[in-house]
Write a protein that binds this DNA or RNA. Sequence first.
DNA 1: TTCCTCTGTCATTCC
DNA 2: AGGGAATGACAGAGG
Length: 370
Amino acid sequence: MPSCPTPEGRFYKAHLLTLMGEHNQGNMDVAWQEILSIAELQGLDAQNNSPYDAIGCGTSAMPSSDYGSCQFTQGVAQSVNHNIQVYDQIYMDANTSQDQHVYTLPLASACGPTAYTGMLISSSINQMGASGHYPPKNLPLNGLFTASTMPNVSVSSTNSVRQLCKGQDEFESDSGLSLNFSDGESIELENIESQRLQVEYMEMLPALVGQDQFGIVQSLMHNITDAHQYSALQSEELVCNRDERQAAAMNIPFPTERIVNLPVEDFNEILSNYTLTDTQMALVRDIRRRGKNKVAAQNCRKRKMENIASLEREIGQLQTEREGLKREQEEAGRVMGDLKRKLEGLQREVMSVLSEKGSHHYHLEDFMSN
DNA sequence: TTCCTCTGTCATTCC
DNA sequence: AGGGAATGACAGAGG
């Protein structure tokens, strides 16, 4: 029986198994051991110190018998920062790209609803360059993968989004759209495209695994793992939301991020560059409106919370001030009482003196009648 | 199961 | 007039 793999190792395997299908189990184990050895050489083992079971993606495809009763835990917590950095960098890369196409790995369908955005994965691939072959024909045996030797797994933006968005439906909360859009059709398209891309990827992976002397595939899978882990932590911000799915299904030729964030002039300019149907146009405008409103709602709530906090601070200040004024009032009352008592004493003293010097008995009222 | 919180969305108003 | 911001109200998801 093979030794118990590291958590990350299991993760990679789960991904690979999912990608390649269980039919290839035998070959997969060989490839798996190679990847595992690379991971160990590079000291990439994660510590089993987190209870996080991140393998919502792929667990079902992972045979449990291979590794006996190994506890399956993930050292995810400590890699979160790294994950975020990876994501941020890659997301920025993807966003700054002028290319209209989004390059992605067709992984999302295998990874299910929590699979992360094409951007991360795509960037990993994008940086590898493009040869247009699976696997690359001129792959060097002793050299690093270069821009000219790495496989091109690029697909159109529409395909990518469609692929990546598969399986998200059950995670959407939605109260309706002004368009009468049928998700059923898009899901069907997604399934077909998903299967096609998965076949392509299955063809590509064995070659990569077999010649991965420098851990490129492992690194790639690490990024995929990062993406998945990050997505699990970012479930509130699933990039493949309803709008992206619908945009993909309706063949909207630019990303929703642009639809929402571009200034009006640029947005209109982009629209003028494409010939869109009325339905497409309505969807694009809906997406933009919703995107804007979503941000506005977030800002509004933030402001509201800040206002509440500010008012609570003000209440605290006013209560403090009130307490101070109350104390001042009490002190003033005491001073007033003292003065009153002193005055009465003085008055009695004056009356007494006057009475002693004359035969007439003076009373205080005699002097206060006016 | 119920309640609460968070988030996205819609409708509306205002600028 | 059109676009966007602001905000109340509602619904769904999840803890």
